[in-house]
C-alpha cells in the first residue's frame, strides 16, 4: 500500500508498504530515518518513541497505515543544522549519553515532559521525571545522568522562554 504522512514537517510518501509493517520500520527502512531505534519492538523499551500528532508513542506499535495523513516527529527533527535542541545539548553536557541507543527515544520523551511541565508553569520534579521516563529503558547509565540532563534542559528551556 501507499503511505503518505508528514515527518518532521516534510511530507513523505512511500509505496509498496506491507500492511504489517510498523511506523518504526517505515521510518527506518523506507524513509531513511533510522534515528528511532528498534530495541524491543514490543513497546517495552521506548527507544522508538516518536511524536504522533504531538503525542509521544512507541512507533513500533503503530501500524504503518495508522500514520496515514498524520504528523510524525522524530529525533531527526529536533535540531537545526546549526544548533542542537536544548534537550539534546543537555544530554551531552550532563554525560547522559553512553551507547546512545536509548537516547533518541529519551530525547523525544524528555522534550514532551519538559514542554508540558513548563507550559503548566514549573519545571518537572524528580518524582515526576521518573514517572514520565519510566517507559524508556537505558542499560548503560543507571539513569542518574539522564535525570540530571532533564533538569538541566528544563532550566535552560525555562530561562530561554523568559
Amino acid at each position: 500500500m501507499r503511505l503518505t504522512c508528514t515527518v518532521n514537517g516534510t511530507e513523505q510518501q512511500v509505496d509498496d508498504v506491507w500492511e504489517g509493517e510498523s511506523l518504526l520500520y517505515v521510518l527506518r527502512e523506507r524513509m531513511g530515518l533510522p534515528g528511532s531505534k528498534n530495541a524491543c519492538e514490543q513497546g517495552e523499551c521506548g527507544s522508538c518513541t516518536v511524536y504522533l500528532d504531538g503525542t509521544p508513542v512507541c512507533s513500533c506499535l503503530v501500524a504503518a497505515g495508522q500514520a496515514e495523513g498524520r504528523e510524525v516527529g522524530t529525533v531527526e527533527g529536533m535540531a537545526t543544522d546549526e544548533a542542537l535542541h536544548p534537550v539534546q545539548q543537555a544530554f551531552l553536557d550532563a554525560g547522559a549519553v553512553q551507547c546512545g541507543f536509548c537516547t533518541p527515544g529519551l530525547l523525544v520523551a524528555t522534550d514532551d515532559l519538559v514542554t508540558r511541565s513548563l507550559a503548566a508553569g514549573a519545571p518537572p520534579e524528580d518524582a515526576e521525571i521518573r514517572e514520565a521516563l519510566a517507559g524508556n529503558l537505558c542499560r548503560c547509565t543507571g539513569y542518574e545522568k539522564i535525570l540530571d540532563a532533564v533538569k538541566l534542559a528544563a532550566t535552560r528551556m525555562s530561562e530561554s522562554a523568559r
Binding site: E19, G20, S22, E41, Q42, G43, C60, L61, V62, A63, G65, Q66
Partner: peptide, 24 residues
C-alpha cells in the same frame, strides 16, 4: 481490529499474528 496497537502490533512484529485484514 486494531486501536492502540499495544497487543496487535506485538503479535505482528514477532510473527505470531498474521490476520488477513487489519481493521483500524
Amino acid at each position: 481490529a486494531i486501536a492502540g496497537g499495544t497487543d496487535v502490533m506485538v503479535g505482528i512484529n514477532f510473527g505470531r499474528l498474521r490476520p488477513p485484514l487489519l481493521l483500524d
